[in-house]
């Protein structure tokens, strides 16, 4: 766990399938002990990246290390230390859920028996049913339990909760947190932003086979702007020219000053001070949500996040912004 090198390090990965360029210079670094959110729209190259990291397919170019080694050459040895849930869970339709758990567990060098039992109960799985009689969500549970019950240093989860209901999603998040407390590193590819926001220490956002941005959620938020809507008794003094403030609009409504503006995180304190001086009636401060980061990163040909600050209209509240 205290290994100095990153668990996963990919630099400038490229992968072409015939004419299609699936990865185009992708970077990814996962450090020990963290839950790393891996985000991107459909077809961005998340599963391809994961398969290269696992040594299932070979990169066309770039450099990749798993536990500091080459995953393509030492796949089987390195796999002893990780557990994987594929994006499309496929199991043997003739076997029961319990049998599949054991078979998958065996490929990972055995499951922790106590955890296996506890997880079956927690995820409400009937292990005597045959896979062909399971729903998609239950098949997903089998693969998840097998991975979460394994004694692994690294969990690689490719959209693991796509078939789960909210209750099971909750259980999944709890278990992932527990595993992280045990010192496990997690690479979590997901579409569910709430899940990533709830679990991830750091995220990497990719689009069209390239890394758009990477960092802690706080770091990412720092590049974006907070939206402020204040109603004060007096007109706030000097806000329009205050450092960090943009898109400032103020008007008098029903005897109050109604002000809207965006502010970068570093200057929030100063501007709220000025609002306070003007005697606050109501105050709404909306931090940038991950959705906004996400949409911004995915949107069209927008450049990398740190190329420039986001403007307020991109940060949600479209109804107000349109007014």
């Amino acid at each position: 766990m205290t290994a100095p090198q990153p668990v996963i390090r990919a630099q400038g990965l490229t992968k072409t399938f015939g004419q299609v360029r699936a990865l185009d210079g992708l970077d990814l670094e996962v450090t020990p002990g963290e839950v790393h959110g891996f985000l991107g729209p459909n077809g961005a190259g998340k599963s391809t990246t994961i398969r290269i990291v696992l040594g299932l397919i070979r990169a066309s170019g770039g450099h990749v290390e798993l536990f500091g080694r080459d995953p393509w050459r030492q796949a089987a040895t390195l796999h002893e230390r990780l557990a994987y849930v594929a994006g499309d869970v496929a199991l043997w339709s003739g076997l029961t859920g319990g049998q599949c758990l054991d078979v998958l567990g065996a490929t990972q060098g055995g499951l922790d028996e106590a955890r296996r039992t506890a997880l079956i109960e927690r995820f409400e799985l009937d292990p005597t049913k045959r896979i062909r009689d399971y729903s998609k969500g239950n098949r997903q549970k089998v693969a998840l339990i097998a991975a979460l019950a394994a004694d692994a240093e690294l969990l690689v989860l490719d959209e693991p909760t796509s078939g789960l209901d909210p209750l099971m999603e909750q259980a999944f998040q709890e278990v992932v947190r527990e595993r992280r407390k045990d010192g496990c590193t997690v690479l979590l590819s997901s579409h569910i932003l709430g899940e990533v926001e709830a679990l991830a220490d750091r995220v990497t956002i990719i689009r069209r086979g390239r890394t758009v941005t990477s960092g802690t959620l706080a770091e990412l938020r720092r590049h974006t702007r907070t939206h402020v809507h204040a109603v004060t008794v007096d007109a706030p003094a000097g806000l329009a020219d205050a450092p960090g403030v943009a898109d400032y609009v103020s008007e008098r409504l029903d005897g109050h000053a109604d002000s809207r503006f965006t502010i970068d995180a570093a200057h929030l304190d100063d501007s709220v001070g000025r609002l306070h001086a003007a005697r606050i009636h109501t105050l709404t401060v909306t931090p940038p949500s991950l959705d906004a980061l996400f949409l911004r990163s995915y949107d069209g040909d927008a450049g990398p996040l740190d190329a420039g600050p986001l403007d307020a209209s991109e940060l949600g509240e479209p109804a107000e912004a349109a007014r």
Partner: peptide, 17 residues
Amino acid sequence: TAGRLEMQLSGRLSRLR
């Protein structure tokens, strides 16, 4: 093609075995 091979090879089982 069903995706089961990928699951098996993500463990410590080598391709040749």
